[in-house]
Design a protein around this nucleic acid. Structure first.
Length: 483
DNA sequence: CGTGCCGGGTT
DNA sequence: AACCCGGCACG
């Protein structure tokens, strides 16, 4: 989840409000880690994050509204936002993305949203040049007026409607779709706080989750950083590792495979089991992925209800679904022959879900663990990756405790502490643990492939060696820019 | 050849 | 531990 790459590489998005994440995502070091130094480098010193109400409201495609409430104590701070807005609206004309994309930080977790806590910033991607221009102008107007929030709301300058039914523009739209999925993934608390995100209002959110859920089912690790880093580079030359299902996921979510992937994922859009023909002896079942819950039901609605009521603590007599349940169950294909022999054999060693079947690496030691920090290092049951609880698997923790330096003060909280229900503590990923836990030693002689991320040495250069992380200074594996 | 970082040494 | 560095693999 190297959001730094989103900022640096994304060809379809433009950042608005640099400071957003720091307030919205307090406690999510994953996203902050690498962004901080990069952002600082590219845009100069960050202004102080201070409080005060300047509210901006964007209405995006799905009808979702985002209020951006930002304030800087100094005019410099405002200029920062304005500058970015101007850049967005006027400077990025070559940005041909057609759809206004909101980089969703869930309202349930962004204190700046809904006006709960002053000083929060949303992180937005505005990709429509026309809208960008409007936005910039309106933004400027809104800034100049400095109207109280209640009065400002109805003003066109602070409420920018984006057409709901914008015509898709083919491939670019697909890319945007994929990007949306990934960025949403990177920002949504669903991933990190499954139990604390009660609602996901807009249908679009559900859509991406469906896609995610479909793909995730065959995913073996929770590392999304790779996805984020390459989401806007569809023609990435990186050779996909055959055993890296996340890459499969991404590759199938972008470029030429998108349509197929979307088509596949539409199965998950509907409540009922997949209508596709299957072998006679195979039956589609839905397995709860919650930790230590092996519940298997024959209908998705059933499993959704199960997850909703049992694990998410939702009202049992309500059929309302916000889609969050989709994260916690997986479609599996059960051989009815073996099923009759006993349901205990349900451990889904080969779950059939949308997308290519997962390729489980035969011996675990062949996996380049250091490439992705995932749960597998601390959980020994390798073959039943899907049997891991969804929350634990989804929780990719980019750890950076040892990362010290000028930006240490903004990266703080361990998300693993917050996102897990108290019941299953041992699945809680302590990021220290994720970092420190040594991966099973690869076969001697094999060296892990070099990461693609720029390390301190490259980022700062030899002349700024004192800005390197300690690990880099000691010629150890970089802790700041992990792969 | 530059870079990342492992392995091992020193303080 | 914290720190340093030789040396090797990788791109």
């Amino acid at each position: 989840m190297d959001s730094r790459y989103i900022l640096e590489k994304s060809s379809v998005g433009t950042r608005v409000g640099v400071g957003a994440d720091f307030n919205c995502r307090a406690g999510r070091s994953v996203l902050r880690d690498t962004r901080v130094p990069t952002t600082v480098e590219k845009n100069g010193p960050m202004p102080a994050y201070t409080n005060g109400p300047v509210l901006y409201k964007f209405v995006m495609d799905g009808g979702s509204a985002v209020e951006v409430k930002g304030e800087r104590s100094s005019s410099k701070g405002n200029g920062r936002i304005l500058h970015d807005m101007e850049k967005t609206g006027l400077g990025d004309q070559k940005d041909t993305g057609s759809t206004g994309i909101l980089k969703r930080a869930s309202p349930t977790h962004c204190p700046g949203v809904n006006g709960q806590i002053p000083g929060g910033f949303m992180h937005l991607d505005i990709r429509n040049p026309v809208k960008q221009a409007e936005l910039a102008n309106n933004f400027r107007a809104a800034q100049g007026r400095n109207v109280p929030q209640t009065e400002r709301q109805p003003l066109p300058s602070s409420h920018i409607p984006v057409p709901r039914n914008r015509k898709p523009s083919g491939h670019a739209d697909k890319e945007v779709m994929a990007a949306t999925v990934l960025t949403s993934l990177s920002t949504s608390p669903m991933v990190l706080h499954p139990s604390s995100a009660p609602t996901v209002p807009e249908p679009a959110a559900r859509a991406w989750k469906e896609v995610l859920s479909a793909s995730y089912s065959s995913s073996t690790s929770g590392n999304w950083s790779w996805d984020a880093s390459d989401q806007s580079v569809p023609s990435t030359p990186s050779p996909p590792l055959s055993n890296d299902n996340n890459k499969n996921f991404l590759l199938s979510s972008q470029g030429d495979d998108v349509s197929e992937d979307v088509t596949e994922s539409t199965h998950f859009m509907f409540e009922d089991p997949i209508p596709r023909k299957r072998k006679n002896s195979m039956k589609v079942m839905f397995k709860c992925l919650w930790k230590n819950c092996e519940k298997v039901l024959s209908t998705s609605s059933g499993i959704q209800r199960h997850v909703r009521t049992v694990h998410l603590g939702r009202n049992s007599d309500s059929d309302y679904s916000d889609g969050e349940e989709d994260f916690y169950y997986s479609e599996i294909e059960v051989n009815m022959d073996s099923l009759t022999e006993g349901l205990s054999s349900l451990t889904p060693t080969s779950p059939t879900t949308a997308g290519p079947p997962p390729v489980f690496p035969p011996p675990f030691t062949d996996v380049p663990h250091s490439e992705h920090i995932n749960m597998n290092g601390s959980q020994s049951h390798a073959p039943t990756l899907l049997s891991q609880s969804a929350p634990s698997t989804l929780c990719h923790i980019r750890t950076d405790h040892a990362y010290q330096g000028p930006v240490t003060h903004v990266r703080t909280v361990n998300i693993g502490e917050k996102r897990q229900p108290a019941a299953s503590t041992h699945t809680t990923v302590n990021k220290n643990h994720a970092l420190i836990t040594p991966a099973p030693k690869p076969t001697p002689g094999t060296r892990k492939p070099r990461g693609e991320a720029k390390k301190c040495r490259k980022v700062y250069g030899m002349e700024k060696r004192d800005m390197w992380c300690t690990a880099c200074r000691w010629k150890k594996a970089c802790q700041r820019f992990t792969d």
